[in-house]
Design a protein around this nucleic acid. Structure first.
Lengths: 213, 213
DNA sequence: CATTGTGAACTCATTCACAGCG
DNA sequence: CGCTGTGAATGAGTTCACAATG
């Protein structure tokens, strides 16, 4: 199956969830897990788990289930998180600072190797993780020197498009955008938006309409 | 159409995007907007915009488009963001602090009215927005006193389920979960997860597989 | 006559159901 | 016998295409 098959985006998202549950299960001493149990932990359908994995190979043993450690390694390879990725963070306010010193990111191989801002007060200072805050003007050079592959935008909305343009100009074509602005990028560049207020709007809507799903 | 129709979750998400673009357009002085223009700004299909709005009523004028201000008000009502919502934030680390003083939240009517932690060093101190940090033990009482309707979890993963249980016990049935843990809640409670590493995993996957969509 | 509103067609994702296998 | 792997069936969401209309 795993040939020229197109993978649903939702599948990739779920693989990340499976991976995290497997980490927890390994920590708890489990050696094997069934699709049913993994599905329960991730709050999805067991057939979904099997189908998701089926896109990439046959990792289970019939009658037994999946080897916890083995499946972890396979998903790691699939998601390409069996290596480190260098991030550059632009906008060193509270949120940017939080990311710079965020334990989970580093533990998962996402290293914030550079921090940028445009505030002269901040430039040259040491950020929370002991990293030097650079002028945004240096971004293009830093991308090359430090091999930054993923750009993180934690600026106000008004600056987001400009920062995105600088990233693209510097040949960074993956962006994690925490600003509420919807940035426009060329096809070569991929963007993931993390927008707090959208999620709160959804909760407000559901509370008001008394829905749960 | 707008009767007992089931609304796709994605529609609600997009309404939030439309709303933000409309805010920007009003600021820029636009009086009307077509589904085509709004769609372009939000990077969706024009028919999608019309269909999304169609679930809730007829807000446009054929041959003209939508009145920017009027549509804003309509979406505000639909999303139930034409009022204030009180949030309680648990886990006052870097991320929790960032949320407490986050301008956008307050501007949109999401007020962080209470902050909680379990660290004796922090309890009693004033958080970044000048709010007193309370003992997590006080949560149940504070929920009633301050009318907290949405719980925000910014603790480490290990504490997330406990905090969720406390929220549910206190009758808060909307939770915004920033921890990477997948929390289990009863049906009456709705959860939105905001998980940085999942999004980074997706970017890593796409970079590795050179996909863009 | 430009643009909405919407049934119908289509595409994509999830779930079922069972054959296949250790 | 139990659980995986997967084609087929179902369901959900998106896009098309055009009639309706200010």
């Amino acid at each position: 199956m795993r040939k020229t098959m197109k993978i649903p985006r939702a599948t990739v998202t779920r693989l990340s969830l499976y991976y995290r549950q497997l980490e927890l299960m390994e920590f708890d001493g489990y050696r094997t897990v069934s699709s049913e149990k993994l599905a329960w932990l991730c709050q999805v359908n067991p057939a979904q788990v099997r189908k998701d994995l089926g896109y990439f190979g046959e990792f289970g043993v019939r009658g037994v289930g999946y080897d916890v450690r083995e499946l972890q390694n396979q998903i790691k390879k699939i998601l390409a998180i069996n290596r480190e990725w260098n991030l550059g963070v632009v906008g060193i306010g509270k949120l940017g600072s939080a990311l710079l010193q965020h334990r989970n990111l580093l533990a998962r191989g996402f290293r914030c190797v550079a921090a940028f801002d445009n505030d002269p007060e901040k430039i040259g200072q040491l950020g929370p993780s002991g990293i030097r805050i650079r002028d945004i003007e240096e971004l293009s050079r830093a991308v090359k020197e430090l091999n930054i592959e993923i750009g993180v935008i934690t600026t106000p909305a008004s600056a987001a498009q400009y920062v995105a343009d600088v990233f693209i100009e510097a040949d960074v074509n993956a962006i994690l955008n925490f600003s509420p602005a919807r940035i426009q990028v060329p096809d070569c560049c991929m963007v993931e938006n993390i927008d707090f207020t959208v999620r709160l709007d959804i909760l407000a809507y559901k509370l008001h309409h008394e829905i749960n799903s």
